[in-house]
Amino acid sequence: MWLYGLTVDMLQPLLSLRHAFNYFSTTSSPSADDSIQVTFFDEKDGSETTVAVPLGENLLEAAHNNEIDLEGACEGSLACSTCHVIVQDPDLYAKLPEPDDDENDMLDLAYGLTETSRLGCQVLATKELDGMKVRIPSATRNFAVDGYVPKPH
């Protein structure tokens, strides 16, 4: 289920990537009462990082506090779409408050939009999101290795 939104031809290599990088995954300390566990899967390099996110913090802040490579060009002011993340579990996605018009306007411009896309700066950590996994989509996966060229937007 966590590969939701990927095209079929991407699945196999990504599965092997996931396997390969489990070895390198880092996990921060177990969640306390006032924080939840969130896993970021970075499609660009296949890395997967689980971090503790204090309740009320948004995912852009959480990423930056943990040196996860999630862009935030407008600094969380809803003026860009660079912190686009894809919630891997549709059931968890459904638990989020719906995106408002401003967020939807920006999501329209995001690369690789899916049905469970959100802007990281708008997703606040709440108890019911504990264990959530999000994917950071990338158009530039593995350029260096096999000359992968992204599809035009």
Binding site: P13, A20, F24, T26, D45, G46, S47, A144, V145, Y148
Partner: peptide, 19 residues
């Protein structure tokens, strides 16, 4: 193809390998 096995690259993956 996407990931050439046998290299332990840390978390920077493929670009890092070239680098």
């Amino acid at each position: 193809m996407l990931f050439r096995s046998g290299r332990k690259l840390g978390d920077t993956a493929t670009l890092g390998a070239l680098l």
